[in-house]
Amino acid sequence: MDALAGGTSFVPTVDGWLIHTPQEDFLTVEVDGEHATTVPDLLAEDGEDNTDLLEVLKQEGVLSAPATPATPGDVVVCGEGPLLEVLPPLLAASGLAVRVLPGEDSPRARELEGLRDVAALVVVTSWLRDERFALIDEHCRSRRLPWHLGHAEGRRWYAGPFHTGPDTASYRDLRVRRLAASPWPRELAAHWAWLDAGGLPQPDPAAPIGAHLIAALITADLRAFLHGDAPPGAGVQVGADPATGRIRRHPVLPVPGDLLMVETP
């Protein structure tokens, strides 16, 4: 049986019901006296009289099939920092099966090879880890494993791009395009190398705010993807600035294979 969508409101009127949909539109439903019970009871009744009403409510997003994961398996989360603290509980609260790999440097190559029954991998860190992200990206692409990432850079926190399949961008595409678009490509590459070697940026007191923002965006992506819907973060990097509250979305286009072979600074 179809379920009522969350966020729907049913307001009783003299002639029936006023429905406020999850998309913030309004529908009016007129019913005769003998059917003026509750809307859920009315929708549960069998009969041709309800066919048109049910169809309209489905089209308006008021009714939908019960949400069941379209992709079996766990969401595996690994990494360190504020995101690792807030993301797994949020994923679990959204009804997703979550598995956390312990260890600041996970997943290691051996752990990646041993992953089984995984619907998607999420890697979260306190700052950008260029070499690590590139190795994970190569592994996930070769095994057609969807993967998402979240990290801080400067004072901003970033999510994505969420790689869901061969036609969507991933970290390798983001890396090439960032270096190509930057007015300081050598300096940017040098900063990444410093971070890879163990360099630590100054702690940001607003980091928990940014981590919560990015955790919410990653969770929305995974929940949509694993229930068969299009995730808004597929092929997109989202940046959240906790100092200003601004969230910006940057589409990332896949880079043609021949350009990926060009040596970057």
Rank of each mutant, 00 (worst) to 15 (best):
E30L: 05
P254S: 14
L27C: 03
W147E: 04
G210C: 10
E187C: 03
A224D: 14
A193H: 08
P232S: 13
A190T: 12
A206Y: 09
V255N: 14
P22W: 06
D46N: 13
V262M: 14
Q237H: 09
D49F: 06
E113D: 13
H250Q: 12
A230C: 03
D2P: 03
S126F: 00
P185R: 05
S142E: 13
L188H: 05
P205V: 13
E48R: 12
S94N: 09
D2E: 12
A109Y: 00
A93G: 08
T8L: 05
V100L: 05
E80Q: 15
L96S: 08
L18M: 11
A93Q: 13
V62E: 02
N50E: 01
E187T: 12
D196A: 06
P201H: 09
V118M: 02
A134I: 08
F225V: 00
R249T: 14
Q23H: 13
D229M: 07
A109I: 04
P208D: 12
G235E: 08
D49S: 09
S94R: 13
A109F: 01
P254A: 11
L174G: 07
D258M: 12
A180L: 14
I214G: 07
C140Q: 12
A44V: 03
D258Y: 15
E153A: 09
W127P: 02
L91C: 10
D32M: 07
G6Q: 12
R155A: 07
L115D: 05
A109S: 12
R177N: 06
A159W: 03
V56C: 01
A193L: 15
P203E: 04
I214R: 08
G154Y: 03
E131S: 10
L188I: 11
V262T: 10
T38M: 03
E30W: 03
E34K: 11
